[in-house]
Computed example of a mutant assay.
Amino acid sequence: MNTYYYVHTGHRIGLDRFRRACTIIRSLGDVDITLLCSDFRIANEARHFGVDKAVGVDVVRNIPQIAKHGDKLIFDSEEANPIMLDDMRKFFSAFIRISDDTNDKKEEREFLVSPYLSGNGICNAVVVDDKYFKQQEKTIKLSYFFGDDDYEKDLEKNISFIEDLNPDLLLGFYYFLDYEDSLKKIFKNHHEFEDYDDVIQKSEILITASPQAVLENLASGGKPIYIQREDYTTDFQELFKKMNIPIIKNYEKCQLLTTLKTLETREYYNVEHNSNKLQEFIKENLNL
């Protein structure tokens, strides 16, 4: 009986779920678990994120080609319809689903991890790695991380939104080579994808369209500002409002400037340090 973790990731949706998956897998310690990624490229890089076993499966329907009936699965994706999810609950002996949907509900034969819901069989938690709770000196005044994916080059299309603020730019994982080169000419202070942790932890103010980066910067003692992309889920808006994290929509420059002027007096809520609770929940319900 094997344990798997499936995560939806790729060049059109970014690495937010992947980063969350790696955080959870690392928190489980020496548990034998295989990460299944819907993108082969990041599966090959998973070892650099502390995950020893990772396999690219291309699409969610390929999971049964690797897993067997009776295996265990942690599932982080919005790809599956209700019928497919019900089949998974029957196929796996234990099934944990990660959800960001405020309107979600726990179904029979599954366990749920959610920042919104609570109750029997549900772990109410926000997933942030322990390393981000170790405060570091904020040596970067202002940084900009659009995200790991920008297939349509929206960062460049909306460059006026951020350019004259002269932020440090953190490049994303799926950026094209020619795209990276053009961005480096615009942003003289730029950081490679491999510097992600350093930039997130050392940024006093982080402007980002990555929900996971928002949570990690906040845990690090920073002041994140969330950019709601049109092509991204709005599921995190309610959570960020509860944490008093400013949300900018439609690249509204005036709103961003006003937010930056008032940021010093804004009271952010702390991210709960709940890795132990999450680890215990997963191990108990997967019988690990």
Results as ranks from 00 to 15, higher is better:
residue 163 E to Y: 15
residue 171 L to F: 01
residue 148 D to C: 03
residue 183 L to N: 03
residue 176 F to L: 09
residue 180 E to S: 07
residue 152 E to I: 14
residue 175 Y to S: 14
residue 145 F to K: 09
residue 159 I to T: 05
residue 160 S to C: 13
residue 152 E to T: 12
residue 180 E to M: 03
residue 157 K to V: 01
residue 166 N to V: 15
residue 155 L to C: 06
residue 169 L to Q: 09
residue 148 D to P: 13
residue 157 K to A: 04
residue 162 I to W: 01
residue 153 K to H: 11
residue 180 E to L: 03
residue 172 G to A: 00
residue 174 Y to N: 05
residue 172 G to I: 06
residue 173 F to Y: 03
residue 163 E to M: 12
residue 167 P to F: 00
residue 149 D to P: 02
residue 163 E to W: 14
residue 153 K to F: 10
residue 186 I to G: 08
residue 144 Y to K: 10
residue 180 E to R: 03
residue 169 L to Y: 15
residue 166 N to K: 14
residue 169 L to R: 01
residue 182 S to F: 15
residue 150 D to Q: 02
residue 156 E to C: 13
residue 170 L to D: 04
residue 159 I to D: 00
residue 146 F to V: 07
residue 185 K to T: 06
residue 167 P to S: 04
residue 167 P to K: 03
residue 184 K to I: 06
residue 141 K to A: 15
residue 173 F to E: 02
residue 177 L to R: 14
residue 148 D to Q: 01
residue 150 D to K: 07
residue 150 D to T: 08
residue 148 D to T: 00
residue 170 L to G: 07
residue 181 D to I: 14
residue 145 F to I: 05
residue 149 D to A: 12
residue 158 N to M: 09
residue 157 K to N: 09
residue 152 E to R: 14
residue 167 P to M: 00
residue 151 Y to E: 07
residue 162 I to V: 01
residue 167 P to E: 01
residue 162 I to R: 00
residue 177 L to Y: 15
residue 155 L to F: 03
residue 153 K to C: 07
residue 180 E to A: 01
residue 157 K to S: 03
residue 165 L to V: 07
residue 162 I to C: 04
residue 171 L to N: 09
residue 166 N to Q: 09
residue 157 K to T: 15
residue 165 L to P: 11
residue 181 D to C: 10
residue 163 E to K: 14
residue 153 K to I: 14
residue 151 Y to A: 11
